[in-house]
Write a protein that binds this DNA or RNA. Structure first.
Lengths: 350, 350
DNA sequence: CCCATTTTGTCAACCGGTTGCCAACCATTG
DNA sequence: CAATGGTTGGCAACCGGTTGACAAAATGGG
């Protein structure tokens, strides 16, 4: 029922057609039908203006009637171009990447490119392998929050255009959400609410962005005269956030920034399970404003990143590099923004 | 402060070589180094046993020193094989697909295949275009909860192996989580809790699974002597769930199944915002047990699907078909399971 | 030691496009 | 009417693998 091939069929030898009986039409079929040379067909299809309007029309019609579709492999062989851009994220299940993916995907679709998605599962080695493998088949690569070293990223970018999101790598185009803006608002808000001791639950050691967020928080706290400390974590997930609960309770901070919303949610739930009242006993802030960050009780206050724009801008940038345009599109300003919900509040008198 | 790339960097112009100076090594280079014919290299690399052990070794060594990597396009051109499997989901941002993707991805990686991911954004047309485009470059295709018609799916599966997840299509291998199991438990639970009127907030019209879930619910309700009704919806998302709140309140049911967790969450939050107490006034159940379904207050009761297993099994199936194995792996039993949390409870006396 | 048989390697023809180079062609213009 | 210059189309050589057919080499038996 599932299988329709007859193993002992006599036709097995004769009908040794590797593909389906009728193979896909080629430019040679079109050429024959239109009465021109295959190379003319090739030009008509890929070099606008190189053939006369009426020959082009004849060819288009022929292609239409034959229902022609280019063979991407045949095209890629001499040119090396595949009309595909790769995107590597560190964790597909992290909702923060949703919008990055969506943004890049729509930008790609608009330019008739295909996006190829892969994840590194937070592993530098896997990320490198994946990136290398992808580089062989894509025209350009976008790395979102990579865990690789600067040198590794640099060496990747020597082969094909590479753009990095949420990290600054010298010599490689980098797109970064402006942490400053949202953090400034957030720290001011906390100061207004009477908080004097703040802490930051850090992300992965190798995360450039985690470092950056901490530096910005520290700088703003200093400015307001608040004390700021760091709490280390295992992994940037809900569980990772849970595991930091003990360390956070051990500290004296009354407000906590978490590297991302996932960790903030995990931390909040673990603390609540232990009887801690949020926000009256402790204020919690995340980063990113992911899907689900408003599902919690109280809903999470967070610093929102312009993720869709980042994804789209990254794609535009890679394409510009692929097309060797001298004029790379300007890097848009991508400010973060404070989203105040229920997990932050006035510091408790007690 | 937003932008850290140096626009006028000197390295930008100089390194503008289209490909790299030294192009990638080919089997011809290996052949030369090993002192054999290119075709021997080709066979050594892809046809184990066709060349003598010691020639093979020489070739392997040469390949190693040259750091050789096959050119997938050159290989794909004559063979049509790409070592890639496509997976199309209806919505990347639906956490229900996380585990499907993960499952398929690991299964693919284990067999040295690459997974190519795409989404149809709940659109049948887009799904068809995407599927057609993908079919040209992958060895097989997995469709997760497709919106296409049976005929369209059938015609796709004529060209390359196709496996469908969460839908039953005649003539095409289909993998379905066994709704029966979880629904049976859930309805019994509701009956025990004193509910007598149940309703089902349906998913997309074209969703086979939505239909199936409703039929199962209806059957179990009949069996227990409960009344069951359907509420239509716009889209299977959080917002879609919100929009059904009015219709749900207008009805007399005391317990509501939603097509998926996303809708259940949306419905619950909208009702809560309107002052309805969950679960004392209304019990709500979702399907899938997605990421975040336990973030809500109360946490969502839901019927969990074995999504990782579905993804992995689907991939194994496609590969078996690709390799033309007579023995397709057996379809594993994939039962759903009731996950009781806080959104269901005893029916209110009032 | 020679011939039959199996193993191993080589040749050459593909797969389906792209592209540099050149010749034929066209419409102008002197 | 011929010379001119710009288009347009054709030829053929790639891109880097795979594979059927065949020859050479190795093996074994008599």
């Amino acid at each position: 029922m599932t299988d329709t091939t007859q193993p002992g069929d006599t036709s097995a030898d004769t009908a040794r057609t590797p593909r389906t009986g009728k193979s896909a039409p080629t430019i040679y079929d079109i050429a024959e039908l239109a009465g021109v040379n295959p190379s003319t067909v090739s030009r008509a299809l890929s070099k606008p203006g190189r053939v006369s309007a009426k020959t082009a029309q004849k060819i288009m019609d022929a292609a239409e009637t034959l229902n022609y579709q280019v063979n991407v492999f045949a095209r890629a062989l001499p040119t090396g171009r595949t009309q595909t851009i790769g995107l590597i994220v560190s964790d597909i299940t992290n909702p923060a990447y949703f919008d990055v993916i969506r943004g890049a995907e729509s930008a790609a679709a608009a330019r008739d490119y295909t996006l190829m998605l892969a994840e590194s599962k937070e592993s530098a080695e896997l990320e490198l392998t994946t990136a290398r493998r992808m580089l062989a088949t894509v025209d350009g690569l976008i790395l979102a929050s990579p865990r690789l070293s600067d040198e590794e990223i640099g060496s990747l970018s020597e082969k094909k255009p590479v753009v990095v999101i949420n990290r600054n790598v010298a010599g490689v185009p980098s797109l970064i959400a402006d942490t400053e803006f949202g953090v400034t608002e957030a720290v001011r808000h906390l100061a207004d609410m009477g908080h004097t001791e703040i802490s930051y639950v850090a992300g992965p050691e190798r995360s450039w962005m985690s470092q950056r967020r901490w530096e910005t928080i520290k700088a703003r706290c200093d400015w307001h005269g608040l004390s700021a400390s760091v709490v280390a974590s295992s992994e940037p997930t809900v569980d990772g956030g849970r595991h930091t609960a003990a360390a956070v309770r051990a500290g004296t901070a009354t407000a906590v920034f978490c590297y991302n919303d996932l960790m903030a949610i995990g931390l909040m739930r673990e603390l609540q399970a232990a009887g801690v009242e949020i926000p009256s006993e402790l204020s919690i802030l995340g980063f990113d404003n992911i899907f689900g960050s408003d599902f919690t009780t109280p809903p999470l206050s967070t610093i929102k990143s312009p993720l869709t724009e980042l994804g789209a801008a990254a794609l535009e940038h890679v394409l510009a590099a692929v097309d060797q345009l001298a004029t790379t599109p300007p890097l848009p300003a991508l400010p973060t923004q404070l989203v105040l919900r229920g997990s932050t509040g006035r510091v408790n008198a007690s």
